[in-house]
Each structure stands twice: as structure tokens, then as C-alpha cells.
Design a protein around this nucleic acid. Structure first.
Lengths: 219, 219
DNA sequence: CGCGAGCTTGATGCCGATCAATGCATGTGG
DNA sequence: CCACATGCATTGATCGGCATCAAGCTCGCG
């Protein structure tokens, strides 16, 4: 968020962030209908965001790691439409919207960053729509693993070995599959030497083969 | 876009819109890699936006009617990531981003509208992800028809009778299905008296039954 | 007229859902 | 400390929805 801001602007942004919030595992940061007041920058931990339809159907629409900013869905109608839940004990910075807005009048870079945030989310969602609409279960899980790996890498963690913070069922929900399918695919990938899985610990053994899997499965 | 702006602001916004663009059927407004310079407000016609993956896979991620603003995907990395194609001879207003940005420094309402735009798109995409990931073909097509109907209604057109501007294949792509499936469903809905279809002309005969179809099919 | 784009309809097959059983931690109360 | 429950994961057997393959139709157009 502060990328490109001069020192004065950063200080004023800091001043606006008067609140850090601890969110315990399974606790909700916001839920549909909650008044939109702020964006939340994740400092520590992992969140899932869940879309809920009027008829009770729900699906996880995103996983969010430290550095991600969530909550932008709420601005459209002043209320959040999705739910954000911590997958582990976490901590966020509260970025009150009225302060961001006031600052963004005088700090062009901040304005850009806010827009860039939303724009990137849009692109990510479009990629996900393509995945959900057109790819096989195999390709979906592969892309999920590679995406996670890449995001860990940019955050300075290992891209080859990591711990999933979500259950099989949550992975399945995100990928539009059933948990049994996810479990079977993990087992198969393991059997084929592509990854090593032990519960939620994953180690990527053959990234190239995984990448080829995605392309190959253009059914 | 001009919602909530005072007269002076509207005039300045008008001044910034020096360009109207005609886009003929099948012509592309922007494509992946194009430098992001502007948003486009549709004045007349219909557009589809298409997501393209590196491996060649593609999927339609949205249909856009007059009043919609498209192009926000391009801001994330200064380049568009998707493609926008006119489904019929159309006309757009070009909203140069640097002008919007300059104006939005002094016109808070414009800032809000820009953000609201992106936020609503995000919510729409999340709803679509849920549909693609969790709903049956039947429910997907029903939601598509009801969504279109609603959007025509808010634009002053009939919600009961309209002409589809896209092919069966394009509908299928948007819904993550195959064109044969879409065709079969249209035929079935027709047979069951829910709609009347003749080529691309659609008339909704029993909206209530359609709405119940969506809920019922919570497989 | 012939041609191609778009649509419909039928027959068949496969991927992933569903149903079901088991295993294995972790936690909890007697 | 044990008995039992609960949440999560794995694996197998079977089923069904949608894809695939294929044929034929209609309509607009050069």
C-alpha cells in the first residue's frame, strides 16, 4: 500500500492507521451486511473470503496472506457482501476508509495504489473464473498449488515446501470440487512423485511436471 | 459515473470526455497487453470481455450493456489483461485515466464512483465464481437469463422479452458449459413452458418457476 | 445456387459427485 | 487413564450430469 509514497505521505498514512486488530482462528473479520468502514491489511496469518448466495449456497472466493489487503468488496453498496474468516490466529491493520479517502485527495500515489489493488483483484478473479469454468480438477489443484507457492516465494518463504492452512474441504470449495476429489488428487500426485503430502504439509518435488499438467489438460 | 456530482464537476467531467468511439460488431476495443489509458463507458451496444490464459484457454468473463464502464482490469499493471469485443455495432465514451485521476483529486464524489465501480465488479465476479463452482448447468443458464432480464429492466427495456446478442457458444463460454448443453437447456425450458425461444429471441413466460429452479437445484 | 456459421438433437462415454466405510488425531468428561 | 465423541482425511464402489462425437437443419450471403 505505501509503495511510491514520499516520506511525508507515509507518515500521514501511519497516523491514520491507529488500529491493529487481532483475529483468532475461525473468527470473522467482517460478514455480509456489515457496514463498510475500512480496508484491512493483513500483517500476520491467513484469511479466507467466502461468497454467500441468498439460497444458502456458499463458496470460498479467495485466500489471503500477509501483505494482502481485503475488504474492498464492501464499497459498492456501503456494505460487505462477503465474509472474511481467519484460518489461523492473525493480525490486521485497520485502514479506515474515510481517512484513506481524505488522504488520497492529496496523495496521488495512494489513489493509484487503491485503484491498483482493486484492479489486480479483478484480474485474479477473472483468472479464477476461467479456471472454474474451463479446467479439469487436476489442473485446478495444480494451479492452486503453484499459485500458493509463488505467493509464498514473493513473501520470502519457501516455494517448494509449505503448510496449508486450510482443510481439504476448504480447498475443494475454492476450486469448485468436492473434498474427496481433492484428497484423491493429492494421493495421486504423491504416488506419481510430483509432490509429497503429509496432511497439510506439502513439498513440491517436480514443479516442471506440474506446470506441464496444466497445459496438457486442455480438455 | 456522474452520479452525485455537482454541476461544475459534471461540466469538467464532460470537458474531459472529448472522445466518442464507434466500435463495429466483432471489433476489439482493447486486448491483452494494450497499454491502459482509459476507461470506456458504453453508450450504445453490447460488449463481451474475454479472459485469456497463457496456454490458449479462454473464457468470456462478462457481458456489458449501455451504462456499464469497462476497462478497469488494465490498471493493475498499466496494461489490459483481458479483451473487450463488441457483439454489435456499438459506441463508447473514452474516459482518459489521467483526466479522471486529476479530476478525482478535487471531486470526492468522482473518486467514490470510481471505487464503487470496481467494488461492484468484484462482487459480481464473486457471484459468478460461486455460480461456476457450485451450480448445475440448469441453474447457471437460469441465473444468466434472470440477470440479463434485470439489467434490461433497470435500463428501461422489457425484462420479459429481449434479444440475445451472443451466440450459444458465447453463452456457454460465459457459463463454463458447452454450446450443446446450452442449446438443450433452452429447448427444455421451452418445452416446459418456462420461456419461449426462437433463435436469439427470448421471452420469459414463468419467472417465478425459473427462480425456483435456481433454489431447487442446490445439488 | 452453394457455402459456411450457427443451432438442434441423438448416442455414448467419462470425470467428478455421491454414498459409504475406515483410520487417525485431538479433545473431553467420568 | 480410559471411553467416547468429533473433526479431518483417505479410499473404494457406484452413479449421473455434462462433454464428446456425430448428423442434419436453417438461414443469410457472396
Amino acid at each position: 500500500m505505501p509503495a511510491g509514497l514520499d516520506r511525508d505521505a507515509v507518515e500521514r498514512l501511519d497516523a491514520a492507521i491507529h488500529l491493529r486488530l487481532r483475529v483468532k482462528r475461525k473468527d470473522t473479520l467482517y460478514r455480509p451486511g456489515d457496514r463498510f468502514t475500512a480496508l484491512y491489511a493483513i500483517r500476520l496469518g491467513t484469511f479466507k473470503t467466502v461468497a454467500l448466495a441468498e439460497d444458502g449456497l456458499e463458496q470460498i472466493t479467495g485466500y489471503h496472506l500477509p501483505g494482502d489487503v481485503i475488504g474492498a468488496d464492501g464499497f459498492g453498496d456501503e456494505r460487505h457482501t462477503s465474509q472474511a474468516v481467519a484460518l489461523e490466529d492473525s493480525e490486521v491493520c485497520v485502514l479506515p476508509y474515510n481517512q484513506l479517502d481524505r488522504l488520497s485527495a492529496t496523495v496521488p500515489e495512494l489513489r493509484h495504489n487503491l485503484f491498483r489493488l482493486a484492479s489486480r483483484d479483478l484480474c485474479r478473479d477473472h483468472a479464477m473464473m476461467l479456471t472454474l469454468g474451463s479446467r479439469s480438477a487436476e489442473a485446478r489443484l495444480t494451479l492452486f498449488l503453484l499459485d500458493l507457492a509463488e505467493r509464498f516465494r514473493t513473501r520470502g518463504y519457501s516455494a517448494r515446501e509449505f503448510v496449508l492452512r486450510m482443510t481439504r474441504e476448504e480447498i475443494a470449495s475454492y476450486l469448485g470440487l468436492k473434498l474427496e476429489t481433492v484428497s484423491r488428487l493429492f494421493s495421486r500426485f504423491h504416488r506419481e512423485g510430483l509432490i509429497r503430502v503429509d496432511g497439510r504439509e506439502v513439498r513440491i518435488l517436480d514443479r516442471t511436471a506440474l506446470e506441464q499438467l496444466v497445459d496438457a489438460a486442455l480438455h
